[in-house]
Computed example of a mutant assay.
Amino acid sequence: MDTASTTATTAPPLAGLKVLELGQLIAGPFVGKTLADFGADVIKVEPPDGDPLRLWRLLHDGTSVWWQVQSRGKKSVVLDLRTDEGRDAVRALAAECDVLIENFKPGTMEKWGLGYDALAAANPGLIMLRISGYGQSGPYRDLPGFAVVAEAMGGLRHLMGEPGRPPVRAGVSLGDTLAALHGVIGVLLALQARQRDVSPQAPKGRGQVVDVALYESVFNCMESLLPEYSAFGAVRQPAGSALPGIAPSNAYRCADGMVVIGGNGDSIFKRLMRAVERADLADDPGLATNALRVPRVAEIDAAIEAWTAQRPVAEVVAALQAASVPVGRIYTVADIAADPHYRARGMIERVTLRDGLALEVPGVVPKLSRTPGTIPGLAPALGEHTEAVLAALRRQSE
């Protein structure tokens, strides 16, 4: 594998952590991917026909190139959890692992005899991350939950789009990824708690369940939405590319495209107005603070766009950067791939697949100075590690 990642000089932070991943598609596997990037040994259990993500979106040689990101460095073990043999293997694996990740419908693991209480009886230190649409309790727990529904219920989808028009969605599954990131946080918190709770009965410390709901992960990122409603009865509405209550912050037309500008800091606003040749607005005491600017945001936006619309994107970006005003082009993936900052930060890595294809993939975040993460290896072929992993289990039981 060819990669530009920073080479760790010490063991990665999660070296020695054993993770059993039972989830499919996006949320659960994204957790496993993140843990693997920082040194965890992740065993991914797949059904006989594989994780459906293997066949999602654009394929190379019959396998999604997305798979090369979501499952990099994992070990693939094929088990049929509908059979006694498959469930017995999961029990044996869970007894040896620190973390188990699952994102089935609540109650599924219990139906298979793989609930937390059953697994923790053999491994008190086990941490089980459970990701579902609505959580493991509450009146909606048994409803099917996908990211699209979680984004709607969490309050995000209502705010996305233009006023008076149907809401739109982001082109990625934000609800799944936000849940996964909350899952990673939960696992790390549970590992920290486990270190403080070692006993003769639990030499590794006591584990626990981390219950992550997709809709709650979205709702947790909704900033002032609820307190504003609680205090003032204010129901925030969609506002297109603007950010209500923050002025100015919007997307603006240029002669050959668009830019986004964040000029809402008081001193930044003054620099922005002078850069767009509106010193009168920069010096207007009635626009000195954000609270004063909000009622006049339409006037401010019009002044900015009157200037940007007469100039190409490159000229607008250069002028505002020179004035220390936050500004940027709206990137496509082609822009990302060509941007030197992405490459300087190690955010575009190159891996070489088994058939020789050089593939660029996202790098590792966050950046740690002493124990950085690295891309741990290629994504596995279906069942690539089944024989080796199960043989090791058999040797341990002898």
Rank of each mutant, 00 (worst) to 15 (best):
A337S: 08
V209R: 04
A152I: 01
L174V: 15
G145D: 03
L35T: 01
A337L: 15
G39Y: 04
T6Q: 07
A302D: 14
T7E: 13
P163C: 10
D37I: 00
L214Q: 08
R395D: 14
G383C: 12
A11M: 06
S369F: 02
D197V: 00
G373Y: 07
T386G: 12
H60N: 11
A306W: 10
W307S: 06
H341F: 10
L287Q: 08
A391P: 04
G164V: 02
D80K: 06
K44Q: 11
D284W: 11
G39I: 01
R296H: 15
P376R: 05
A202Q: 13
L93N: 03
A4K: 11
A242E: 06
R395M: 12
A309H: 07
C97G: 06
P139K: 12
R354F: 00
R194H: 09
A275F: 09
L178E: 05
E102P: 08
L214I: 14
A381N: 10
G32Q: 02
L359N: 09
Q237T: 13
G265V: 03
M1L: 12
A306H: 12
A242R: 15
V210A: 08
H182F: 13
L129W: 05
G133F: 09
M347Y: 10
T352G: 10
L226N: 08
G28N: 04
L53G: 05
G39P: 07
S397H: 11
P285I: 09
W56C: 12
D61C: 03
P203I: 07
F269R: 04
L119S: 05
V212G: 04
L100K: 05
L159P: 11
G155P: 13
R253W: 00
L126H: 10
S241L: 08
P29D: 01
V212F: 07
A279S: 15
V168Q: 11
K33F: 02
V218D: 02
A338H: 04
P29K: 02
L272E: 05
A40T: 03
R82V: 00
L189P: 00
K74Y: 06
L35P: 01
C97L: 03
D256T: 10
E398C: 06
I304E: 06
V45T: 07
H182N: 14
D61G: 14
V78M: 03
V148Q: 09
K105L: 15
L55D: 02
W66G: 12
G233Q: 08
Y215I: 08
R343T: 06
P285V: 08
A179N: 07
A179R: 04
R169N: 13
D284C: 12
Q24S: 11
